[in-house]
């Protein structure tokens, strides 16, 4: 290891790094790599057929569309929630702050059955929406609702610290230069918050794309209509179509890694923008 790093007075580098790499390799890297290896047992045309059949394409459309819309809604709502939590004092603030993380802490299966029961035709919320001609459970709208729930904390938690670190001088300067509150927000605050908003959106979007537990209950899982891509992977697996499942998984993994890369770049962009002037 000596050539890898400077000699240090603190002990344990070789042991801790060695163990970390071994564990990382065994639990994460080898299983992931084996998935990509498995796809190489498919010919190109088999692979293409598996990832571009109409049923699969319909699932892409639903997964991407619903995740994107949920991300957008969370951007807006998350900004409002973060703003309220940072800027205002009100009753129950600490509780609200803690509750924001509920979607992280609540097992997805619980979220799934709770949302389904709420939005079913006879549910607490569904019963109100039904007369208006809106059905949520077992429609694409239900998928959107579940994904909104699951992505809710991301934007709040990325925007909140940036908003917290913002110096009041920035807004005071804008006000002293004659800008009104809306102009200050549009021209000063929003550009500063943009990297965090985008990061939050990307995180929520990535999470929503892969989400399974909270969606399977509320979606109804009708092929071509309310079937998301992760569910399709499971369906193929249950039909012993290992090759098909693997091909779909490979596509999703590549998309996940691309998103991870994008998120890292956003982080870098955000920190560069945030460097003290």
């Amino acid at each position: 290891m000596r050539h890898l790093r400077q000699r240090s007075v603190l002990p344990g580098f070789g042991l801790t790094l060695g163990y970390s790499l071994l564990y990382l390799g065994l639990i994460v890297l080898i299983p992931l790599a084996s998935t990509f290896l498995k796809t190489t047992t498919l010919s190109w045309s088999e692979f293409w057929a598996a990832v571009s059949s109409p049923r699969v394409v319909a699932s892409y459309r639903l997964s991407f569309g619903a995740s994107f819309l949920a991300g957008l809604v969370n951007c807006l709502a998350g900004l409002v929630v973060a703003w309220v939590l940072v800027r205002y004092e009100f009753w129950g603030k600490r509780l609200v702050d803690a509750l924001v993380d509920l979607p992280f802490a609540l097992p997805t299966a619980v979220a799934g059955i709770a949302l389904t029961t709420l939005y079913a035709r006879t549910g607490w919320i569904g019963a109100w929406l039904e007369p208006l001609g809106i059905s949520v459970a077992f429609t694409p709208l239900g998928v959107f609702v579940a994904l909104t729930f699951i992505g809710l904390p991301f934007v709040v938690r990325t925007v909140q610290p940036v908003l917290q670190d913002l110096e009041p001088e920035l807004e005071e300067a804008a006000a002293s230069l004659g800008a009104n509150r809306w102009q200050t927000f549009r021209r000063i605050l929003l550009p500063v918050l943009r990297p965090a908003l985008l990061t939050g959106f990307a995180l929520a979007f990535a999470r929503a794309l892969g989400e399974y537990g909270s969606v399977v209950f509320i979606s109804g899982n009708m092929p071509m209509k309310t079937e998301i891509t992760p569910l399709l992977i499971i369906t193929k697996l249950e039909q012993y179509d290992y090759a098909g499942a693997t091909a779909l998984a490979a596509v999703m993994l590549v998309i996940s890694f691309a998103l991870l890369l994008a998120i890292n770049l956003l982080h870098w962009w955000g920190s560069r923008h945030h460097a003290p002037a």
């Binding site: 790094l17 970390s20 299983p31 084996s34 989400e211 399974y212 693997t246 998984a249 999703m252 993994l253």
Partner: peptide, 30 residues
Amino acid sequence: FDFRGKQVLLTLIDLPFSVSPVISGLIYVL
């Protein structure tokens, strides 16, 4: 400690978070 490849290691550690739970199970089935 300072060593080469630290950034790569950090990214790899985060990897499981960006993988769909379904795929997290699938890889062991495969």
